[in-house]
Design a protein around this nucleic acid. Structure first.
Lengths: 249, 249
DNA sequence: TAGTCTAATTAGACGCGTCTAATTTTCGAG
DNA sequence: CTCGAAAATTAGACGCGTCTAATTAGACTA
């Protein structure tokens, strides 16, 4: 049984396309393969030759393109992977469909079998554990966008109303970045802010578990200068307020 | 700000390596870059030229290699991504370190920013929601391996002791594959079996949400022939027992 | 059946990323 | 200060995956 990942990304794509075309229209014409892969017909020929050399397709000049049973088997498994990863991203991480499609298309080729299996297990776990993780996550996302005044979650229906955050804050187990003094540092727990700010922070590298050190602070805490992974950044107060840290040495 | 993914995977790797070398040893020598990327020194030169053309490194023949501020910025963000993805895989999906390292290395280049942000949010959610998802997942995994006699979870400390599965089974909402008759079909909910069997089934394409139809069954249900994604497979009873389905039309 | 259109193929090119085998430069030890 | 080793570079090659332009085969039409 041919291993997933033994072929190049491109060849795996060809194989999947051929499989789909055969299922849909009973035959795989060079032109249709080219169209679906957004490639010129002349690019398809060498790909078919390479696949043929690997015993995955039957192809002879001017002949009908079919899959060998090995090829069918590999293509079916690749498609299964693809669909699962897409579904995982959409249903668990709440990624929009087109993006999930694009990412699944890439992950499918590169993910190790071990990670894939763990993903499957996690998915199954979430599906059956009865903890309603999906809907809680959705609530969590919805509430992130609402505001950033320091409350984790102001919505009365939010499952985190009485969560452990505020208790932990009271005990000094978490702080916001803006409450640190110059020289102090902490490890990022999460960012509590609306989409725009969160996006900006994530893009700048403010990710969970990253250590942040406060360097300098303007009088009213705006702007605040920090060091992160050996790199200096300047944040506005609004952003610093959104960053929730575990204190660290 | 240079976008992640605008460069080839290879160039992004070079950039990260240069960044790390400069942090570690104050300078990035061609030889060290080559060694760390497992590539010959002569391969490094054209890479440096390409990076230089993109204004990410300063490089002139026989000169010192440094990063431009753009290059530093991109490298730092790439490394942040890398570390986060690795940590996500390890701590959430329970992927072993070396594999997480390898996969993170690939994902970091290909994942869309949207999916990445959702991953960050999910991670933060799991970290703060107080539901102890990580340890429950670990228990779940540990119990999968124990046996496959139809009980979801025999361990007294298992959080699924009173889960909804058996209730659902009693109501006919879930079935094992082996309880289906020829012609009937179902949608996979999960695989309840030890590592070896689970691995085999996943590799054959038995993934969550895939529709399986029973084609034929030998007298004692061993082997059992199924159709899956238009493809035929033969399973042993042991395997069929492990597959838990939602009934489907 | 000849003509024409389309699909398939070939020829030849290019860029990326790698290699090996030379060659040149640099640098430190004696 | 010179020499030799190590580092850096060049030259030239290769495979993949793509392209355009030209050609050939096939199939339908009039």
């Amino acid at each position: 049984m041919m291993k997933i990942g033994a072929l190049s990304e491109s060849l795996e794509d060809y194989l999947e396309i051929i499989y789909q075309l055969i299922q849909e229209t009973k035959e795989a014409r060079i032109k249709d393969i080219a169209d679906r892969k957004n490639v010129s017909m002349s690019s398809v020929i060498p790909a078919l030759r390479r696949l043929s050399k690997e015993n995955l397709v039957n192809y002879k000049t001017r002949g009908i393109v079919t899959l060998t049973s090995q090829g069918q088997n590999l293509a079916a498994r690749l498609l299964g992977r693809h669909e699962f990863v897409k579904y995982f991203l959409m249903s668990l991480l709440d990624v929009p469909e087109e993006i999930a499609e694009r990412d699944a298309c890439l992950f499918e080729h590169y993910m190790s079998p071990e990670t894939f299996r763990k993903m499957v297990m996690f998915f199954e776990f979430v599906d059956t554990c009865g903890m309603n993780i999906r809907s809680h996550f959705e609530d969590y996302i919805a509430n992130l966008d609402k505001q950033g005044d320091g409350e984790i979650c102001p919505a009365p229906e939010c499952p985190f109303k009485n969560d452990s955050f505020r208790r932990r804050q009271r005990w000094g187990m978490v702080k916001t970045l803006s409450s640190l003094s110059p020289g102090e540092s902490g490890r990022v727990a999460r960012v509590q802010a609306d989409t725009a700010i969160r996006q900006r922070l994530i893009d700048m590298g403010v990710l969970p578990n990253v250590v942040i050190t406060v360097e300098r602070m303007a009088p009213l805490g705006d702007p605040i200068e920090i060091k992160l992974r050996g790199y200096h950044l300047s944040l506005r107060k609004e952003e610093a307020d959104a960053i929730i840290l575990y204190p660290s040495t």
